[in-house]
Design a protein around this nucleic acid. Structure first.
Lengths: 152, 152
DNA sequence: ATATCATGTAATTTTGAAAATTGCAAGCTG
DNA sequence: CAGCTTGCAATTTTCAAAATTACATGATAT
């Protein structure tokens, strides 16, 4: 399949909104930055809203974060848009008549959980403020002025 | 896309071979356990071989692990079959004319690397012997006799 | 108040990476 | 030699995600 870029796109949406100086930001504007379509952006925003990370109102183009970026972790965003989907996937289609096959996957399941936990623990420590900070650093190093939503 | 189950399948192959008492194990036999086809199993085995985890000879059905399962980590297997493919994926198709979009993804990249490192560090601590141990425990709890390659 | 632009959401189509399949040359083994 | 096997390349199928389409509902400004 295609790789899921929902976490990257959702973080993009959140940071784009945070970075915006203008009061009004439409899904169309955000979509242009991600090179996608407004409906997809709104789907992401709906999930972020359901997770309590974003506020938005029908008909009005002024979304806003519910909390300070320092209080929103990458894990929050991950849970919002990937909803429990694991990073590693078992092969659930093994031969049910083969005990070895069945129980090897069960055994793997237990250890996959540890990897998932480690990844999530790390994501919990990364905040949107951290990412935004890195963003500003990179922009400075490249001598680029952040705002683009006014121009493009 | 489909989810990749290569890591789970490759671990399955390794443990199936380790668990086998019979000297001869064909790719067809392993494939039956994973509910797949021999060619796919051989593709995985080719990668495991290239990574130095497995020995096999053309024409002869007697593969064997190159090291003790206690000396083979889940990360070894992951690197062998996923070859540097990350767990999280950036959105590389952003608008190149939007600095915000471009640099947000660059910033994310840096933090994704930390998550990847954490996951890999955890995988490095899990050995095939650990997984095989869990496998035996689960079999015992379920009162199931492990070997299946003799029967099915 | 009404024309215009936004959101929210469902339904459908397209895309793309992985698995499945096919085919066959090369090699072991009885 | 006959009947297995592996190794590997090429093709087809699968299926989750993204893209697209459509439209009802709601805001906003002139």
């Amino acid at each position: 399949m295609k790789y899921s870029t929902r976490l990257a796109d959702a973080a993009h949406v959140m940071l784009f909104i945070h970075n915006a100086k203008a009061p009004a930001i439409s899904s169309a504007e955000i979509a242009k930055s991600i090179c996608t379509n407004p409906a997809y952006v709104r789907q992401l925003m709906a999930k972020l809203k359901a997770a309590g990370l974003l506020l938005s109102t029908r008909g009005a183009a002024h979304p806003q974060l519910t909390r300070d970026p320092a209080d929103i972790s990458l894990l929050d965003v991950y849970n919002a848009v990937e909803g429990g989907k694991p990073l590693l996937h078992l092969d659930t289609h093994v031969n049910p008549e083969c005990n070895v096959g069945v129980y090897i996957q069960y055994a793997l399941d237990a250890h996959y959980a540890d990897v998932q936990k480690a990844a999530e623990a790390r994501m919990a420590k990364i905040t949107l403020a951290d990412i935004y900070g890195t963003f500003l650093d990179l922009c400075e190093k490249a001598q680029v002025t952040p705002p683009c939503q006014s121009g493009t």
